[in-house]
């Protein structure tokens, strides 16, 4: 296996991005930041891979338009996934493993606010028995949360504690769109929105984009004093049928973690949990101990830009290594309904 590291990371998150859903105007400065961090220009990037969705943009081939932000003459080696860009990162990592390329820039973008996000996402469900019922993401999450509450696996207080920690961590940070020190008791005083969920249990609708630069071996060492080496990366998927899997656990997250290998010594785990109870599911499924610091960035509950929030988790986990704050971290991403698909990556100094 080739040694591959994260050597650059840039992100933007906001309530409403005022421009077009192709987000070219947002990607140009993000790429510029990546060039500045690495000292590279676009001609140093061997492979480009993005994650986005036309359903979010409301137009076809929006990812092709976004290639304008690269400057694609002469033509670039480029690919795309209709998933969170964490899976684009996986594709780029595999591409580097093949030996065909040494460097890659991975990016994700999405203007969630252009449509009614929780409704648009019904299009990711089973098209025969679920999508025609238009189950919104919040209602589906409510079904999952209640299952765990009534089985005694967690309670509303534990969920509120996740939210309180996230909002408190997000305070003073540049990118989260929700923040502010608070307590579980304060949060539990809020009314129910989608019984058993309160609004703060649900990630805010967030527009944004993110980019990560990957490099192999000496190319990584050349441009980064302390690269975040990817020592394990794997993803896994559960059944599309909601009735066909145990919703209070995440078998696919457990399988992905097992494929990565031991998680011993992980100091920080950035978990992509768009609903508060899903963090509790993930901590259990990944077997993370109480000593692991969870999502110090504030996590998805404080900002969840579709198609880049998972990539941002990996970027945040990598950044804590690059900055010298941690020696071993975990980045997690999810995609699909109710933690259907999970990607786990472990990085080390």
């Amino acid at each position: 296996m080739r040694d591959v590291a994260v050597v650059g990371f840039a992100q933007r998150q906001m309530d409403v991005f005022p421009g077009s859903p192709t987000m070219v105007e947002l990607l140009v400065p993000l790429f510029a930041e990546c060039y500045e961090q690495t000292g590279w220009t676009r001609s140093d990037i061997d492979f480009w891979c993005s994650g986005s969705s036309d359903y979010l943009a409301g137009r076809s081939f929006s990812f092709v338009q976004a290639v304008d932000a690269i400057g694609a003459l002469p033509p670039v080696n480029e690919s795309h996934v209709e998933m969170d860009a964490a899976w684009a990162l996986y594709e780029a990592w595999v591409k580097i493993q093949t030996g065909e390329v040494d460097t890659a820039l991975v990016y994700g973008f999405g203007k969630s606010s252009a449509g009614l996000l929780r409704r648009v996402l019904a299009l990711q469900l089973d098209p025969y028995t679920l999508t025609p019922l238009w189950p919104d993401t919040v209602s589906l999450a409510g079904l999952q949360a209640r299952l765990g509450i009534e089985a005694g696996l967690w309670d509303e207080k534990a969920m509120a504690e996740v939210v309180a920690r996230s909002l408190t961590d997000a305070e003073g940070r540049e990118y989260p769109i929700r923040s502010g020190a608070t307590t579980a008791a304060e949060l539990l005083a809020a009314p129910l929105y989608a019984d058993p969920l309160r609004k703060h249990d649900c990630a805010p609708v967030t527009d944004g984009a993110a980019a990560i630069v990957l490099a192999a071996g000496d190319k990584a060492r050349d441009v980064c004093e302390r690269p975040a080496w990817i020592t394990g990366i794997a993803h896994n998927v559960d059944s599309l049928h909601l009735g066909g899997r145990e919703l209070t656990t995440s078998a696919s997250a457990t399988r992905a973690a097992a494929a990565v290998g031991s998680l011993d010594g992980v100091e920080i785990a950035e978990l992509h949990a768009p609903f508060s109870h899903q963090e509790l599911i993930l901590r259990e499924a990944l077997g993370l101990g109480a000593d692991v610091r969870i999502s110090p960035s504030g996590g998805a509950l404080t900002g969840n830009p579709m198609f880049s929030a998972g990539l941002i988790r990996i970027g945040e986990a990598a950044s804590s290594i690059i900055r010298g704050e941690a020696g071993r971290t975990l980045g997690h991403a999810t995609s699909g309904p109710l933690l259907q698909q999970n990607l786990v990556t472990v990085m080390e100094a």
Partner: peptide, 13 residues
């Protein structure tokens, strides 16, 4: 087995 309350239905439901 479980349920959630839809306080603000969206079109098509």
């Amino acid at each position: 087995v479980t349920w959630s309350w839809v306080s603000e239905p969206v079109p098509g439901q």
